[in-house]
């Protein structure tokens, strides 16, 4: 099937219906493996057992940024190519992105208290991730405020593109400013600095979180298409009742 065929919501619904059980099963299998590896991973020589928090905190942080990246690509699809599924994809990704960002912030605070002696500091990394969370809430509020989905999509797309400026700020905040947060130790030019006994569970958990996002995003996109169909049918019903 050519990729362009997926622009048709009906074809997307049919294909996603076939794919969803496979993605859900793969997600469950990846989480089972990831949690087993996380539980059996050795303690870090400095952090002790609190390194286990990294196995949920880091994938959540990657997905917090990844969801906004998906929304940014979708925003281009809405504004430039007017792709029929672009605003559906953006709207479905926003709540998931907000949830992963909340997970990143909460698990980070629970790691920070025993390791740094504080839940929170107003440094570049933590503040820019908090700004990302607030931007997710802003986009969600915008979708709810504007009744017409296509108008809401254009407004949200503009806000998403503006908000994308925050992504490199989050990534490089630990290099640009003095911060309590450690610098990148996995996604860096010189390769990971983490020992394989801790890197393997981290990457398996990251795969599990990625599969979870893909599964939930597909399901949420299907819901959004159905919501729009309900809206259209209600409008047609009201239109007919007026004649």
């Amino acid at each position: 099937m050519p990729l362009i065929d997926l622009a048709n919501p009906t074809r997307f619904l049919a294909l996603s219906h076939r794919l969803l059980p496979w993605f859900a099963a793969a997600t469950a299998a990846a989480f089972a493996s990831g949690i087993y590896l996380a539980v059996s991973a050795p303690d870090d020589y400095q952090q002790g057992a609190t390194v286990k928090i990294m196995f949920v905190h880091v994938p959540a942080a990657w997905l917090a940024m990844g969801c906004w990246t998906v929304m940014t690509i979708a925003a281009l699809g809405t504004l430039v190519w007017r792709h029929p599924l672009a605003d559906v994809a953006a709207r479905a990704a926003a709540p998931l992105g907000a949830a992963f960002t909340a997970m990143c912030l909460i698990t980070g605070m629970l790691w920070g208290r025993p390791m740094w002696g504080t839940y929170w500091v107003w440094d570049g990394r933590l503040t820019s991730v908090l700004v990302l969370f607030l931007m997710y809430l802003g986009v969600l509020a915008l979708w709810r405020t504007v009744e017409d989905p296509s108008r809401a999509a254009r407004a949200a797309a503009v806000l998403t593109l503006v908000g994308a400026i925050n992504l490199p700020i989050i990534k490089f905040s630990v290099d640009w400013w003095a911060t309590l947060h450690q610098p990148a130790s996995v996604l860096r030019l010189g390769g990971p600095t983490i020992h394989s006994s801790l890197l393997t569970p981290l990457l398996v958990m990251a795969l599990a979180f990625l599969l979870l996002f893909v599964t939930l995003h597909l399901a949420a996109m299907r819901n959004e298409i159905m919501r729009r169909r309900v809206r259209t049918m209600l409008m047609l019903q009201a239109e007919a009742a007026g004649h």
Binding site: D43, G48, A49, T50, K52, I53, V56, H57, A60, A99, F100, A102, M103, I106, T107, L110, W111, R113, P114
Partner: peptide, 18 residues
Amino acid sequence: LGPYANFILSAYGAAALI
């Protein structure tokens, strides 16, 4: 889980709830 078990379990609990 050492002396910070409550923090580790809380982090996993919060992630599971989300």
